[in-house]
Amino acid sequence: MSTEMTTAAQLSEISEKTDLLLRMYRQMVAIRQFEAQVNELYTRALMPGLAHLYIGEEAVAVGVCEALEQTDYITSTHRGHGHCLAKGASPDRMFAELLGKKAGYCKGKGGSMHIADPATGNLGANAIVCGSAGIATGAAFSARALGNGRVAVCFFGEGALGQGVLYEEMNLAQLFKLPVIYVCENNLYTEYTHYSETTAGDILARATAFGLEAASVDGQDVRAVYGVAQRLVDRGRRGDGPAFMLCNTYRYHGHHVGDINREYYRSKQEEQIWKTERDPIVNLKKWLVEQKVSDAAALDRLQADLEAEMKKAVEFAVAAPYPAVDEVGEDVYA
């Protein structure tokens, strides 16, 4: 059991992999541009219902998923667009799902909070807090039983620490030595309540009590996230059992797109500090330029390209047809 961060040696090793770094940069920008369009769809009243934006937390999904194979499994949450994209889903079919269109990943039946995609190992986003702890643990169980070498990652917000089922699953995972990594995204707030008001004691100790390998990491530093994730994924794949990863992060927007007035639960100043000093994209960009891995102009071009790509994906989704009404009764049973 250890709680160490990514070591300096590991970091410098990661830092030499320029392809990896540029790929992670691209993915983070893609997620941010995707989410910017989601917000736009909401404000223009083009999207039914609400969505929970991942902006600010991009380094977590990207750093973790970069350590996974396409065949590895993830489970995701109500704030799941980032996980989904980082695991390889395509934006046009995601937008189509967000608009309830037939071309969406779930034929419009799931919407923002339920995107699932077997082709990228995505077992599904979940609108029940901690609703997928069992599913992820079960996926790890079948990976071990079938001997296919896969691992499962269970993403959840720190709010899920309140659910008893999480502890039942961690206990089972350790007893059965399952290749599952529980990734806790602590963005400081559940909906409108600071996590310290709902979380007693030490978070990592909850995992180490069951004998899980546990580590905490700066969730705004994609290199650090990747480093820890890779180590925990490797040991899971080797058969060394489950792990718990605490990623300290921040959501820039409201709990959902409609949560505009937030001063009663957090200050504008706090938001500003995270955005200006801790931004995962800005900071990686600065580093990439300083290290001469890339130059600012190229990275700006990349961002513009991704923005254009997202806009095209939105256009596709807006133009796509709704499912036929009689599809409502399909898919209830397999």
Binding site: G100, G110, G111, P323, V328
Partner: peptide, 12 residues
């Protein structure tokens, strides 16, 4: 309610 999980897509 129809005997289906409630779908997201508005027309459904």
């Amino acid at each position: 309610a129809m005997h289906v999980p409630i779908p997201f897509s508005p027309p459904l």
